[in-house]
Design a protein around this nucleic acid. Structure first.
Lengths: 129, 129
DNA sequence: TTTTTTATTGCAACGCTATTGCAATACCGA
DNA sequence: TCGGTATTGCAATAGCGTTGCAATAAAAAA
């Protein structure tokens, strides 16, 4: 049986952080922005919860950290996380590249459950400097 | 100044493991196969060393672990690691899909330093079961 | 071959990200 | 308002990887 979802102040705070931010955020980002207000373990659980609800999507970065970003183009129920994610080595941020989306063409016999496309480099801003 | 590369028994053992294996291996895989013969820290350093030499390429899996695989299609000096990597949820192995290779088409202004394409699902063997 | 130089190894301790158990607290429906 | 239960905070633990250092061994020099 699925757990009942409950709205709480802590969840609201975390969601606010995401709404004020353009890119993707990792656990440490959230904790830092809400320093002293929420326990770090709670942040882990809330992020996982939002992910389970389909509100955030999850991005495993090369640095071992997990980033989360608001789902924008996800149609009701369907979780469309098939776009690329970009890590800028200049400003050290992770962002979604909605434009870069591609489903892989696998050899015969394979079945795909998830695909992630992770790119690192410099974003237009940092490259110019 | 670059360090001098030295051939040792331990490195040979690690390389043998890769040569006997089709897919990619993570640190724990190597340690397990060489249980009691090499220290775990040494394995980390040897893997990093082989990577620096361009003999192995590195794969960051979604599970947070780092896998390594022999470079096969890499022409001299050039490290061509632009193919996709596949994690089979059945046999829990990581393999290289040399056939699935694609350079990302990024929006104007971005510069790419690295790109990784990670797919999980079921391989032909495990799917059939 | 013997000596010298220095890369490499093993061991112990540490760092970072994330998870689990549990008692106390706060939501939400009745 | 009340009661069941999801949620929170705290402490402890787990997993993967790194660092420091003394001892060892490979390759170059004598």
């Amino acid at each position: 049986m699925k757990k009942q979802w409950r709205n709480t102040k802590t969840k609201e705070m975390v969601m606010d952080v995401f709404c004020c931010e353009a890119g993707a955020l990792c656990h440490a980002d959230i904790v830092q922005r809400l320093a002293g207000k929420i326990d770090r373990v709670t942040v882990y659980r809330i992020l996982q919860g939002f992910f389970d609800e389909g509100v955030l999507h999850k991005i495993s970065a090369e640095n071992g950290r997990t980033y989360y970003a608001l789902c924008r183009d996800c149609s009701a129920g369907q979780h469309a996380d098939n776009h690329a994610h970009f890590y800028c080595m200049g400003c050290k941020t992770v962002s979604c590249l909605e434009e870069v989306a591609q489903l892989p063409q696998l050899p015969q016999g394979y079945s795909v459950s998830e695909a992630s496309w992770f790119i690192s480099g410099y974003c237009p801003n940092c490259r110019a400097v």
